[in-house]
Design a binder for these strands. Sequence first.
DNA 1: GTCTATATCTTGATAGAC
DNA 2: GTCTATCAAGATATAGAC
Lengths: 212, 212
Amino acid sequence: MTTAEPRSVKIVRHDASVPKAMKQSDEADVVELKGAAKTRQAISDAARELFAHEEYANASVRNIASKAGADPALVIRYFGSKEQLFLETVQFEGFFELAMAGPLEGLGERIVSALLSDQRDAGFSAYRAMMRASGSEVIRRRLLEAIHEMFVEPLAPRLKGPDAALRARLVAAQLAGLIDGIAILEDAELAATDRKRLSEVYGAALQGLIQP
Amino acid sequence: MTTAEPRSVKIVRHDASVPKAMKQSDEADVVELKGAAKTRQAISDAARELFAHEEYANASVRNIASKAGADPALVIRYFGSKEQLFLETVQFEGFFELAMAGPLEGLGERIVSALLSDQRDAGFSAYRAMMRASGSEVIRRRLLEAIHEMFVEPLAPRLKGPDAALRARLVAAQLAGLIDGIAILEDAELAATDRKRLSEVYGAALQGLIQP
DNA sequence: GTCTATATCTTGATAGAC
DNA sequence: GTCTATCAAGATATAGAC
């Protein structure tokens, strides 16, 4: 079943496959993967996909290996454990940075809008996967850290008035609640709502905490 | 091939030391349950407790039975399946009704305040349990129904202005995000925040959707 | 480097003795 | 009514042949 054919695949290498040594060049260089590196990448991709759409308990090592066209034993061999594999593959991307970069005026609407356009991408999936796996303390803490890094830390220093840190954290909470409804509970009415309208209405609620 | 060796590790029966005062609930404890009804009740209580604090996959039938001091076979016998047991035990209570009953003025703050005082009760636990088990479509739908019954349906008809139904749904989303932070991710900073201050700040954000 | 084979454990659920 | 005994399936993880 597995490809004994020595075909190589072009991928963009991030820091995921780099153990500990810091790369001097921070450009994402395109490399040709062969052998173990290729297999490892295939496992990583398959894991990201399965963790995103399946339940944590259901995304088994066997299923991941099968989807990757690799052997289950290699999954453990390369990543140590299933939980470690989860932590290395399920990550957020900086898709809020653009929205966050602009002025405080209209920021609430831009954040919601950015979230809604990510619907098929990594943001929703990572949050859903981590919430469903939040019985694990390691994963729970990872998600909490991500929330602080993505929202509270960039946003809090910019907010005027009292309780800036608290308000920044609560903006993140508002967003989390929206993801709960759309991406986790799959609320059909919410998903069917016009994005622009949703961005306006909910964005105004966020804005109420950003500029009280 | 199960263990032919007579191991000493077994399920400890608590018959000799049954904790009579397990729950001090002031409801319906006047009736002494006996036999099957008593066992069923013990299983139900243990399940509610375990589903609330453990991961769904980790709250096994065996663990539930062990905690209830009953036999694992009886769990299935009485409730049919693990999922059915979940649906029969994990339920919301109407703890928002009081807050919802008052005037629209200050409703946001009252809702948040009601939520925060429930911290140890059924509301938080049920939401956390259902979110973590949201890989099951049945459970996912149950939670979505509860959100609509508790929030959208009572609230939407009272809201003035456009998008009343959407705004009511989004108020529920705001609340869900707060529960995510406090009860699921166990954000220490959020939990340590003064309740009154939190009710005021986040309540104002809710109020922005209730009375735009 | 990869995969076959398996060890070990746990799950939900069932059958039948007591 | 309760529990012993067990099933069949599936999980993670490991050892060692190729």
